[in-house]
Design a protein around this nucleic acid. Structure first.
Lengths: 288, 288
DNA sequence: ACCAGTATAGAATATTTTTTCTAAAACTTT
DNA sequence: AAAGTTTTAGAAAAAATATTCTATACTGGT
């Protein structure tokens, strides 16, 4: 049996279970371990795995060869790929990349094509957001907003619409909300009043605006809580944040979208409204 | 800093974000990659990781030492342990089932569920937009913007983020754009200057704001062209419009979204930029 | 009980991978 | 601008790891 090395984990699993009975005792030991502990197999070295199934390292190599691989490392690669593939983030960048490659092929851009591209990549971004957003972050943000006396919103340039939307919709669910809009360049004067009972939601994307970073720093200094909506955990505003939403928004030909950011903003406001808000209509029955 | 090697991934992450700014350029590169691709770090060898962040392998060792580890492998162990601990390696279907159970237990208004609902309905709204948007409307809008000396943006309350986004991104593609933001209640003074060579993009949703309707009327009176983004062809701003985009945005439990509106706004700007804009950066090569 | 064929352990070897080290480059400070 | 410091790339060395090989042990058939 040296001809058809299974090309993915599922196939290998099937192959192993199929021929399990015909294997020698030691190889059965190995088989059992591989099936039961795929993560260990992916991450540990051959000798560790060998130790765990109480077998010599060379036995594992033998095992791999029985199933058609050139060596144990070849087989191990399947286990590693499995983890890489099931992981949420690479699939996103992969999808985006594929989409972009496809989009870049058409070089004459009718507005209609542009719309299509945007719709598609916004959908991908939204699905990604849904897959990676952590419940705890959302919960914690809602709690912070609830406890806050006032919610301050910071965001300029591309992030401004998000901040503006938050300010508008928060006050509509009767949460005191204040947009640090820097009209007349008064951002620093405005952020002066931040206090320990307040929450700042700062929105900033690369290249990060100094203004917003300054507000974030001021929040920290004054003891206010900070919720960051940004494109990286390494951004100046994420660093001091109690909660950080890392948003990968769609990007079509250099232009980044705001869809995912707006979506998380809406989610925050509406989750808050449903849990604590009193500006909300009576909730009707569950949807079926 | 050779005394306190963080003992788990979360601590390391915090430590990295905390000291990110003080790192040298190469080390920043590494930091970014580690934060964004924990799975790769766990599974790939040092030289592969090095290749991915476009850095020498030794640089990663340096990085690890800066954070107090004896070598890169020491640090890598954290990433591996994370996978081992977090994933008891349930199969995919198992994971789905667990998720559903979890979702059913908590009440249906958990922030996480709200996010799910939003993502789904925003996607539907986007697909709808793609299906009903008419090429001619897009084309005509781009032409109007091109011919216009200045583009004025009108939109208040819920429509304000859309108008703000348009103003910001239009000026970024070097189109004169002016946001009629009504600061100090000057909307009528601001709209006074509308002339025959101008275009107004008015954004308004039910219940339609008088301010925006007034701007639309003034545009008509002064001979400026009007592009309407609204939820109905019968709205006060649609009536006088040269082009009208009828946008059906997502609605989740009383709250309407802005996703589709933002998407059409982006489409307009970028279509314009590609056809006429000169504010566009030269498109550099695809990232590998 | 003996033989042929297979399986196994463990040492020896080969390979890959990590770490250390050095010279050059970039950046600071005086 | 010169001297010192930090950062970096790349080669060389060390360590870890995987694979091959061989002697021995086991198995089942006669």
């Amino acid at each position: 049996m040296t001809k058809s090395p299974p090309g993915n984990l599922d196939d290998l699993r099937k192959e192993i279970t199929r021929s399990y009975e015909n294997l020698s005792p030691r190889l059965k030991q190995v088989a059992g371990y591989l099936i039961d502990n795929p993560n260990d197999v992916a991450l540990e070295t051959l000798s560790v795995i060998a130790g765990r199934c109480d077998v010599q390292p060379s036995t594992i190599v033998r095992f791999a060869k029985v199933f058609g691989y050139r060596g144990a490392s070849d087989m191990q690669r399947l286990f590693r790929d499995e983890i890489l593939n099931s992981a949420p983030s690479p699939s996103y960048s992969e999808r985006i990349r594929q989409f972009r490659d496809r989009a870049d092929e058409t070089d004459w851009l009718s507005p209609h094509n542009v719309l299509h591209d945007f719709v598609e990549s916004n959908i991908i971004a939204l699905e990604h957001l849904r897959d990676v957003a952590r419940s705890e972050d959302l919960e914690q943000s809602v709690e912070l907003m609830h406890k806050a006396e006032t919610v301050y919103l910071a965001g300029v340039r591309r992030a401004f619409p998000v901040a503006a939307y938050l300010a508008y919709s928060l006050s509509h669910v009767e949460k005191r909300a204040f947009l640090l809009d820097g009209v007349a360049g008064m951002t620093s004067e405005q952020s002066w009043m931040l206090g320990p009972g307040d929450v700042v939601i700062a929105v900033s994307f690369r290249p990060y605006a100094d203004d917003t970073a300054a507000v974030a720093a001021r929040a920290k200094a004054n003891g206010a809580s900070l919720i960051a909506i940004s494109d990286s955990r390494l951004s100046p505003i994420s660093r001091d944040a109690a909660v950080c939403f890392e948003i990968k928004d769609a990007e079509v030909r250099q232009f980044r979208s705001l869809t995912a950011s707006m979506c998380i903003a809406q989610t925050l406001v509406i989750s808050y409204a449903y849990r604590y808000g009193n500006g909300q209509e009576k909730v009707e029955g569950k949807k079926k």
